[in-house]
């Protein structure tokens, strides 16, 4: 089965002794060649994180983000689907009725989130909430710099979820005009 060959040793103890000595030296030299090559000729892979940052993938799932419409209001309709599907029970949405003026000028009652809280300390970033959102307003973005010494600060209110940067994959595809391939349900 194409295995690594096993060690073959002579039955003569004297020859076997020198075989052991010789194979020890040779195989150690082979190993030293590889490690020496790595030490002198191959480039380092460490990224000195705070000074140098990696380019994260567009699909990286970190802090949530709620999209807003032109007037700056969240387009969330407070349907509560994300709250229901969340395996960690970390989303809390309550509903309120607000009156908005449509572009046609008529006034309309719509559902808007009254309270929208995500407890990031409990979240496991599974993306289920973003996938069930019927109006595509909840997304997971690449913003991962929210670690904190106080677990209560990880409870993010709606204002904290409206930050514009960085974009999620969904929005990046929207702005690029590229075909909408990810993040859809």
């Amino acid at each position: 089965m194409g295995h690594v060959p096993r060690t073959q040793v002579s039955s003569n103890p004297i020859i076997a002794f020198f075989q052991y000595v010789w194979s020890s030296l040779i195989t150690a030299a082979k190993g030293l060649r590889v490690t020496g090559y790595n030490a002198w000729l191959r480039e380092r892979v460490t990224v000195a994180y705070p000074k140098q940052e990696l380019d994260l993938s567009l699909r990286t799932r970190a802090k949530h983000r709620v999209l807003v419409d032109d007037t700056g209001d969240p387009i969330c309709i407070a349907c509560g689907q994300c709250q229901r599907i969340c395996p960690d029970h970390c989303i809390l949405v309550t509903r309120k009725k607000v009156t908005v003026t449509t572009p046609e000028g008529e006034e309309k009652q719509v559902n808007r989130p009254d309270e929208f809280v995500i407890d990031l300390a409990r979240c496991m970033y599974c993306n289920l909430c973003a996938e069930v959102c019927p109006v595509d307003c909840l997304h997971l973005t690449r913003d991962f710099k929210y670690s904190s010494g106080d677990v209560h600060t990880m409870r993010i209110e709606l204002e904290g979820l409206l930050r514009p940067e960085p974009l999620s994959e969904y929005e990046a595809n929207q702005t690029d005009g590229a075909d909408d391939e990810g993040g859809e349900e």
Partner: peptide, 13 residues
Amino acid sequence: KVSADIQSRVGPL
């Protein structure tokens, strides 16, 4: 530093 060199790391900086 030597172990970092051999292991493709950078070591103390």
